[in-house]
Design a protein around this nucleic acid. Structure first.
Length: 704
DNA sequence: GAACATGTAG
């Protein structure tokens, strides 16, 4: 739009240079606004600057400041120019410093803003009430608490008293530096609080993830009679999502509708996010579809809504739609949700595509994005890629390290996982409760009992982390896997917190592997006291009897299970073939009898034959009989998924199957056979663990 | 001169 020519309003300047004038020329009153409004490019500023130099108008402080403000604040990326003008000023006053500090804070570097503030004090130029919001904002951005406190003290010392702007920025600074309680003290001490003061405090609590405090403060705000605005609602809706407080969320939703605020994009995005996080994903989608305008944040909110609700296919569908429309470009945040969906689905090729897209678009490898990539590769069994991403990351936090430790632990590299755990400690990164779950899982996979015990004690002693039920569960797993069944049993009995069914189930599974009937029976009893036993619990108990030759008992447990009509959660398998994820759901409900299992495997082999492959009948028979003896319940779908996967892919292909339920014994056996018969490497994901099948055997043999 | 929406590990 702008022609680049000098704007006609410049006629306010004299037509000729005033070389003969000795006094500093006066500047017309209204010209300040005129310059500010008209300058749109650095070239404009250049021309005006030249004119001001020629006319000596630049010697007028008001003119110079005007020029400075135009350069430092209004134009993008012209701070260097502003700094050169500032450098030419003989005695810059508070206003000139304020402009430069503000420009540096927002446009160039908050660090330089702090240095400039120091220079201001050294030059004995007194800061005024306009200086403090900018410099505090700079401290806030730098998370420089000490400097922020010094500025706060200086403000008090200057005797400005109560100033809303400064106090609001103080709240922001303290909360951003992790001192939300100090922020609250500033808030409580305020004489008058306008809506921005309340909003600053909400933002502070949001920053500190104190969602309950947001909700409580909103109640107080309504009691206080201060009217809330759109910004308030955005903070409160965010908190409602985290607290799953649908009631308050809907109350705000009605308020938005009643006041016709549906045009506010950030507000509507918060509303979509709130509904999705409260489990009302379809309501969120309806609102999303109704939005007249949708930016990358809105799209990302909806995609993550699906992803977090475990509706990963819809997450990827929506991402695809976003790509097709090509109006809004995805950003780092969008890609985090996309990768999360790929990880859950085991969509390896789609995720790899996402990674190359990130590289192609030169997206920043943020901590979150890097961590999501590590997790994605880990869940698809590609540990080397996890490590590669980790190595290429500039900044890593406790999430990043934990994701990598978990990646190695769940992919059978327990010792290496622990190496990284100790490396992390060497880098002075504090492990948290989740890190210890990953580290203990590593011990369990590597069979490191002593290491596990010492980690468990060090967690409380050295890091002050109280073990939760998950940590106790890990310890039971470590002891149980190594056959220390009695010790694991005593460990559970001595737990200071009530063991849950998961802990007992872990012990039961160990009893199955190590053929311990007594403790196995006791574990089963404990499970049934705590909750109705799962089909898997009956099968574990039945299998314990079967392996020690108590066939009658094995069948008795089986028939008990049938009598009690134990509901089995439907098995769900996802298999990725040529980049397309296929989903298979089991129809069976645990009522299968052994004949059915037998025929299922036969059916599968028939299918394979009909596709032109010639299976070895001995393999199928052997497997079916083993199943019969062990009396396992079938997951048809997995076997068929594997079979179909094999049929459609050329020999030598690596097939990835991800499951969100446990892989059952006969699926495992069938996969072993297929890997041998058809010479395929097959990777099966079972929640967080991987099973690599090759040449008829599996790399992860425990529990089978 | 102050406040606001999407995202990471179990």
């Amino acid at each position: 739009m702008h022609s680049g020519k000098l704007p006609c309003t410049l006629s306010v300047f004299p037509a000729k240079p005033l070389a003969a004038v000795t006094a500093i020329p006066q500047f017309p009153e209204n010209s300040r606004a005129l310059i500010l409004e008209q300058c749109k490019t650095t070239k404009d500023i250049n021309q005006i600057h030249a004119h001001l130099l020629k006319t000596r108008l630049v010697l007028n402080p008001a003119v110079a400041e005007n020029l400075l403000e135009s350069t430092a604040i209004l134009l993008p990326s012209s701070m260097d120019y502003a700094l050169s003008i500032f450098g030419e000023m003989e005695e810059p006053d508070s206003s000139a410093y304020n402009i430069i500090i503000r420009g540096l804070t927002y446009k160039q570097s908050p660090h330089e803003a702090v240095l400039m503030f120091r220079k201001m004090l050294e030059s004995s130029v007194e800061p005024n009430e306009f200086t403090f919001p900018s410099i505090l904002k700079a401290c806030s951005r730098l998370r420089a608490l000490r400097e922020g406190e010094q500025v706060h003290a200086h403000f008090v010392k200057c005797g400005f008293g109560s100033n809303g702007y400064v106090e609001n920025t103080l709240i922001h600074m303290y909360a951003n530096c992790g001192r939300v309680e100090v922020a609250r003290r500033v808030f409580d001490a305020m004489l008058t609080r306008d809506v921005v003061a309340w909003n600053s405090m909400f933002a502070g609590y949001t920053k500190g993830e104190c969602w309950g405090e947001v909700s409580k403060l909103f109640c107080r705000m309504r009691e206080s009679g201060v009217c809330f605005d759109e910004v308030t609602m955005i903070s409160v809706l965010t908190a409602c999502g985290r607290l799953a407080d649908l009631e308050l969320g809907e109350w705000i939703s009605e308020h938005i509708e009643a006041n016709g605020l549906q045009k506010n994009l950030p507000l509507m995005t918060s509303l979509v996010d709130m509904y999705a996080k409260c489990g009302e994903v379809d309501t969120a989608r309806r609102l999303f579809d109704q939005m007249g305008q949708r930016d990358v944040v809105a799209w990302s909110a909806m995609i993550s809504g699906y992803s977090q609700a475990n509706r990963c296919r819809e997450a990827l569908d929506l991402f695809h739609e976003m790509q097709q429309r090509a109006i809004v470009e995805p950003n780092e945040v969008t890609m985090v949700s996309v990768l999360d969906a790929c990880a859950v689905l085991g969509a390896f090729n789609t995720g790899k595509w996402a990674h190359s897209y990130i590289k192609k678009k030169k997206m920043k490898l943020t901590v979150n994005l890097g961590t999501a990539l590590i997790d994605f590769y880990a869940k698809c069994g590609s540990v080397d890629s996890s490590i590669e991403v980790f190595t290429n990351m500039d900044t890593k936090n406790v999430y990043t390290w934990t994701a990598l430790i978990q990646s190695l632990a769940s992919n059978g590299q327990g010792k290496r996982a622990l190496d990284f755990f100790y490396m992390m400690r060497g880098k002075n990164i504090e492990p948290n409760d989740v890190t210890f779950i990953a580290a203990l899982a590593a011990c369990s996979h590597a069979g490191l009992v002593d290491e596990g015990r010492s980690l468990f004690f060090s967690m409380t002693k050295d890091f002050g982390i109280e073990p939760r039920i998950e940590h106790y569960g890990c310890m039971v797993d470590i002891l149980g896997r190594m056959g220390l069944i009695e010790e694991a049993y005593q460990f559970i009995k001595n737990m200071p917190i009530q063991p849950n069914a998961v802990v007992w189930r872990t012990l039961l599974a160990s009893c199955r592997v190590h053929k311990n009937v007594e403790i196995g029976e006791a574990s089963f009893r404990h499970i049934t006291i705590l909750e109705p036993a799962h089909s898997g619990d009956y099968i574990l108990l039945s299998n314990i009897y079967a392996v020690i030759g108590r066939r009658e008992d094995a069948l008795r447990v089986r028939s008990q299970m049938r009598q009690q009509r134990i509901k089995k959660a439907p098995g769900c398998s996802l298999i990725e073939i040529d980049g397309v994820v296929h989903e298979f759901l089991t129809e069976d409900d645990g009522h299968l009898d052994f004949k059915e299992i037998y025929s299922t495997i036969e059916d599968m082999m028939k299918q394979i034959k009909s596709a032109g492959y010639e299976p070895n009948p001995a393999d199928a028979r052997l497997d079916a009989e083993e199943d019969y003896q062990e009396a396992s319940v079938s997951h048809h779908s997995e076997k068929l998924a594997i079979a179909f996967g094999l049929i459609r892919t050329p020999p030598g292909t690596t097939i990835r199957i991800s499951k969100n339920l446990r892989v059952c014994t006969d699926c495992h056996n069938a996969t072993k056979i297929i890997s041998r018969v058809y010479n395929r490497e097959i990777i099966v994901r079972d929640r967080n663990r991987f099973h690599h099948f090759k040449d008829g055997s599996c790399s992860c043999n425990d529990y089978w």
